[in-house]
Design a binder for these strands. Structure first.
Length: 591
RNA sequence: GGCCCCGUCGUCCAGCGGCCCAGGACGCCGGCCUUUCAAGCCGGUAACGCGGGUUCGAAUCCCGUCGGGGCUACCA
């Protein structure tokens, strides 16, 4: 077999040590012997005690991990995660799982282009990136497009764009190329087939001729008996007969022969020690009867071939991790370190999905969220930079990131907090940058491009919009009054303009404003305040009608600045127009 | 059903056996500021799921229980 070929040279010397248990370091409370072998609980937790006929036998072909197993520890014995421990020179070792030497870590984003980039996918990518960058490792972007029917170019493009938008980059991958040449799984089909065939030759996999009924019956029965509904290969044909049926032209998928009994365990980089009894793992299909690879095969082969050292992914893949480990080791390769991130959920606690609102990252971009805010929020959702800080730009996160500081709890995606954070980032923007970022949104509101003079007008009012906006898509409506005719907001008009004092206020304001010289926010303010005083009006009462008349809404940027930017002529025209509307007793909207 | 993961304010995070009648942030409530809306500032509300055990001492360790979630395909 040649499966190992693609990997061997990618694994630096010393990498065999990486599975060693991370030492219990320095914690006052650690009671080593006891903690490492929790009384009784461990096996029960993994379901290997009850009726444990064969008992738990570790089937493990990797000497390094066998050594690891000899002082396996429960997740509770994970090294302390406190701030003090996260700093300093020992962090690298703990994160990489190695206890000596240096290993170049390599991670991958492996989205499948069967949909838009999901916020959860973005977060996973972000954590991968943060981890790699904080460790001086490399990042790869792979296209897991084995599902030909559902994969599209458009989705693939959306994923690349979304990742870039978030501020991530990668050293090799589908769009940038790299030393491995081809990063699309759909173009590596031959390789997967070869691996599958080699596995068959080695007796680690077989052509499965079981019928749907057989499988169905098996699962139903297992379930009825309270056993794992994991197909155990009982209908597997001997290779002689299988060969015969194949030769007769029958198509059959290739299944991996899971060694049973046995146990597959691993030290998850975020969850700690996890084990599965092999009876829980079915003889899963690795190559479909049409010759295409399943996710398990393609993904595992690629992780091996591309030298991925750390597989950091969503917790939904945790139950299939033993399959990947078994496959990897059957290929003669060294397994990667796996780290499973808990899922993002909706307010109801179930996996984030469309019914919870937007799940596509691009929807947030279109709603006027800043990528900086999005990245920050996503990072904070499940990880804490410490120091009670939450506003931490991506670049600052890098040196502070640590995988074992990642939370094991699922996190509710809270758009409200995202919005708050977006406002914080919006306010931090340089005014010119704010205008530049807001411009497309204003153009979208107007449905046309902005003239240079209009951009200048917006720039003049922008600081006042910036300090109150939470999203970029609020800017258009806020500044629209500057760019064309006013549109009166019905609710505002009804609420403010009905008062009998309004016509007089409008008239006096016009008189006051006609002589203002020069025309500026401060002179306008002085003139209007004088007018207010003469009429004995409060600012609250006297200014609102002017606001509605000039901006069309009772919600607007500050009035004096708005008038200043609008200009005397337009301001007076709008006050006149509003007055006319009142006289006509025609207080409707369609201006 | 089986397996796995998870359980601190409504939400996110901190907490690593005494510094905790639990801290920060969002939200919410109240106040200040104020030309609207915001922003800002000040204050308040609110949590260790439950039961045992270990210990002088438990949010922290152990066991159990309950609850939530994920997976359980020739999808990924």
């Amino acid at each position: 077999m040649d499966q190992g070929q693609g990997v061997r040279h990618l694994l630096p010397a010393g990498s065999r040590h990486r599975h060693r248990a991370r030492p219990d370091r320095g914690s006052v409370g650690a009671v080593p012997g006891q903690r490492r072998h929790p009384p009784g609980g461990l096996y029960r937790r993994h379901g290997l005690r009850g009726g444990g006929v064969g008992g738990a036998r570790v089937v493990d072909h990797d000497p390094a991990s066998r050594r690891r197993d000899s002082h396996r520890h429960s997740r509770r014995s994970r090294p302390h995660r406190g701030r003090g421990h996260r700093r300093g020179g020992d962090r690298r070792d703990r994160d990489t799982g190695q206890s000596g030497g240096r290993m170049t870590i390599k991670v991958r984003f492996a989205p499948s282009p069967t949909g838009y980039l999901h916020v959860g996918g973005g977060r996973t990518a972000l954590y991968n990136w943060l981890f790699a960058r904080s460790q001086g490792g490399t990042v790869m972007l792979r296209g897991d497009d084995t599902d030909v029917a559902r994969s599209t170019e458009a989705y693939a493009a959306d994923i690349v764009n979304g990742l870039r938008w978030l501020g991530l980059d990668w050293d090799e991958g589908i769009d940038v190329g790299g030393p491995h040449g081809e990063y699309h799984q759909s173009r590596r089909l031959e390789r997967y087939r070869q691996v599958a065939m080699d596995l068959v030759d080695a007796g680690r996999a077989y052509h499965g001729f079981e019928t749907e009924e057989q499988l169905d019956t098996f699962r139903r029965q297992a379930q009825a008996e309270g056993l794992a509904p994991a197909y155990d290969g009982r209908h597997r044909l001997d290779s002689e007969e299988a060969r015969r049926r194949l030769a007769a032209g029958e198509a059959a998928p290739i299944r991996f022969a899971v060694p049973r009994p046995g146990e597959t365990r691993f030290d998850d980089a975020v969850k700690g020690d996890i084990g599965f009894g092999n009876t829980q793992i079915d003889d899963f299909v690795i190559l479909r009867s049409d010759g295409s690879p399943t996710y398990h095969l393609a993904s595992t082969v690629d992780d091996v071939d591309f030298g991925i050292t750390h597989v950091i992914r969503g917790e939904d893949l945790l139950p299939s991790t033993p399959k990947h480990i078994l496959l990897t080791e059957a290929m003669g390769a060294t397994r990667a370190i796996y780290g499973h991130l808990s899922l993002l959920t909706g307010p109801d606690g179930s996996k984030l999905s469309k019914r919870h609102g937007h799940t596509a990252l691009n929807a947030y971009r279109d709603d006027g969220y800043l990528p900086e805010a999005m990245a920050n929020y996503l990072a904070i959702l499940g990880w804490s930079p410490g120091e009670d800080e939450e506003i931490v730009p991506l670049a600052d996160m890098v040196p502070r990131f640590s995988l074992d500081a990642v939370s094991r709890n699922p996190a509710v995606f809270d758009p409200t907090k995202l919005e708050w954070m977006n406002g914080v980032y919006l306010r931090q923007l340089h005014p010119a940058a704010f205008v530049a970022r807001a411009r497309p949104f204003v153009e979208a509101t107007l449905d046309r491009e902005l003239q240079p003079a209009e951009v200048d007008q917006i720039a003049a009012i922008a600081p006042f919009v910036q300090e109150r906006a939470k999203r970029l898509d609020e800017v258009g409506p806020q500044v629209a009054f500057l760019l064309g005719d006013v549109t009166y907001d019905q609710v505002s008009w009804d609420k403010v303009m009905a008062d009998p004092s309004v016509p007089v206020i409008l008239a006096r304001a016009m008189t006051a404003l006609r002589t203002v010289e020069p025309w500026s926010a401060s002179t306008v303010e002085a003139a209007l305040r004088t007018m207010l005083e003469e009429r004995g009006l409060s600012a609250r009462k006297g200014l609102q009608p002017l606001r509605v008349a000039v901006t069309g809404s009772s919600i607007s940027p500050p009035l004096f600045e708005s008038m200043a930017v609008l200009g005397r002529e337009s301001t007076l025209r709008r006050l006149t127009e509003a007055g006319k509307r009142l006289l006509d007793r025609w207080p409707t909207t369609d201006a």
